[in-house]
Simulated assay, not measured.
Amino acid sequence: MSIAPRLSRFAEQDSGDHWPGFVDALATLLLVIVFLLSIFVAGQFALSRALTGRDEQLAALNQQLATLTDELALAEGENQRLEEEMVTLRATLSDVQNERDQLSDQLVIVMGQMEDVQSRLLLEEEVTGQQLDQITALNLQMQALRDQIAELSGLLDAAEAREEELESQIYNLGERLNAALASRAAELARYRSDFFGRLREILGNRSGVSVVGDRFVFETDVLFASGSAALSNDGRESLRPIAAAIVQLTQEIPDDIDWIIRIDGHTDPRPIRTTYPSNWHLSAARAISVVNWFEDLGVPSNRLVAAGFGEFQPIAEGSTEEAYARNRRIELKLTSR
Rank of each mutant, 00 (worst) to 15 (best):
E84R: 14
Q63E: 04
G112H: 03
E99G: 00
V110A: 13
V96T: 06
T88Q: 12
G129P: 12
D116I: 15
E76P: 02
Q80C: 01
L138V: 03
Q64D: 07
E126M: 09
N139K: 14
I109L: 08
T69K: 13
S119P: 00
A59K: 10
L74D: 08
R100C: 02
E83L: 13
R120N: 13
L93A: 07
I109Q: 08
R90Q: 09
Q63H: 07
Q102E: 00
A73R: 12
T69V: 01
S94V: 15
E84Q: 11
E78Q: 07
E71A: 11
G77K: 15
A137M: 04
E85V: 15
T128N: 03
L65R: 11
E84C: 00
N98F: 03
L72W: 02
E99C: 02
D101C: 03
D133W: 04
G129Y: 00
E56W: 01
G129V: 09
Q134F: 01
L93I: 03
L122Y: 13
G112K: 07
L68M: 02
S104G: 15
Q134I: 02
N62G: 03
D105I: 09
L103V: 02
Q63M: 10
R90W: 00
L93R: 12
G112N: 04
A91Y: 05
A66L: 04
D70Q: 14
S104T: 14
V110M: 11
Q64L: 11
Q97N: 09
L68D: 02
L103M: 08
Q64T: 07
M86L: 15
N79T: 09
M86T: 10
D95M: 12
